[in-house]
Simulated scan of single mutants.
Amino acid sequence: MWSLGLLQMDFFYRRKPWYAGQFIRMISPKFKPTKNSVLYFSVLLNKLKTKLLSVLVRDVESMFVNSSIQLPVKQGKPDFELMDNFIAELEAERIAELEAYLEVTGLSDCELT
Score class of each variant (00 low, 15 high):
W2Y: 15
L4Q: 03
L4N: 01
L7Q: 13
F11G: 01
F12K: 12
K16I: 11
P17W: 07
A20M: 12
G21T: 12
Q22S: 14
I24H: 02
S28G: 08
P29W: 03
F31H: 02
F31P: 02
F31E: 01
K32N: 11
P33E: 04
K35C: 06
K35M: 09
N36L: 07
N36E: 15
N36I: 11
V38Y: 01
L39V: 10
Y40G: 00
F41V: 04
V43H: 05
L44A: 05
K47G: 05
L52A: 01
L53G: 09
L56G: 08
D59A: 13
E61Q: 12
E61C: 06
S62M: 13
F64H: 08
F64Y: 13
V65T: 11
S67F: 10
S68W: 14
Q70Y: 14
Q70G: 06
L71V: 05
L71W: 00
V73M: 15
V73N: 12
V73E: 14
V73T: 15
K74E: 04
K74Q: 11
Q75I: 13
G76W: 07
K77G: 01
D79T: 06
E81I: 15
M83R: 03
M83L: 09
L90N: 02
L90S: 02
E91S: 03
E93L: 00
E97D: 07
A100V: 02
Y101A: 10
L102C: 03
V104P: 00
T105H: 09
T105E: 07
S108F: 03
D109F: 00
E111P: 00
